[in-house]
Amino acid sequence: MMESLSSTLLDIASNSVRACAKNIGITFVDSFRQDLVSLEIKDDGKGMDEEMIQKVQDPFFTTRTTRRIGLGIPFFKEMAEQCEGTFVLESKVNVGTRIKASMKKSHWDVPPRGDMGDAIVLAICMDESIHFHFDYISDEKTFCFDSLEIREILGDVSIAEAEISSWLKAYINESIQ
């Protein structure tokens, strides 16, 4: 299992990047009131058929040629189930994929957040031509972060430049505190 929610998020988002998504939406809900922590990743990548949807939930399956077992989705599912939560995986070939883990916030096994800003920025750095949208929802506030808006400000400067990425990470973390 991953040590934090942020590492989980980065890992699942990297599946979407690999599936050639043009748009990736990430929603992170953290609510005492609803006793809920959830992470949802939606993409418009190449999607999966029924058989594949079943198979990828089994850790002994992967389409990787470098290794025989895939771990990302099984880890994500295990995390949800360990925390009295639910796991959803919906996908359609050539349409996209939605994957979501919802957990009971009060459950002992909910991983710590980790460095969310870092995970979001690293996800964007994987492929800066992809449109990323991040929504954060808690009891007190909502925050949204959109890579198009950032792209517009940065012009020909990459998000991956050290001072830019560290500023953005801090900006996101400050906003979701």
Binding site: M1, M2, E3, S7, L10, D11, S14, R64, R67, G70, L71, G72, F75, D115, D118, A119, L122, M126, A160, A162, S165
Partner: peptide, 18 residues
């Protein structure tokens, strides 16, 4: 930065390089 890399601690390594 596959699942294995991230789980083993690739994030701080990447950031240290940058």
């Amino acid at each position: 930065m596959g699942t294995c890399g991230i789980a083993a601690g690739a994030r701080p390594v990447l950031n240290a390089f940058v």
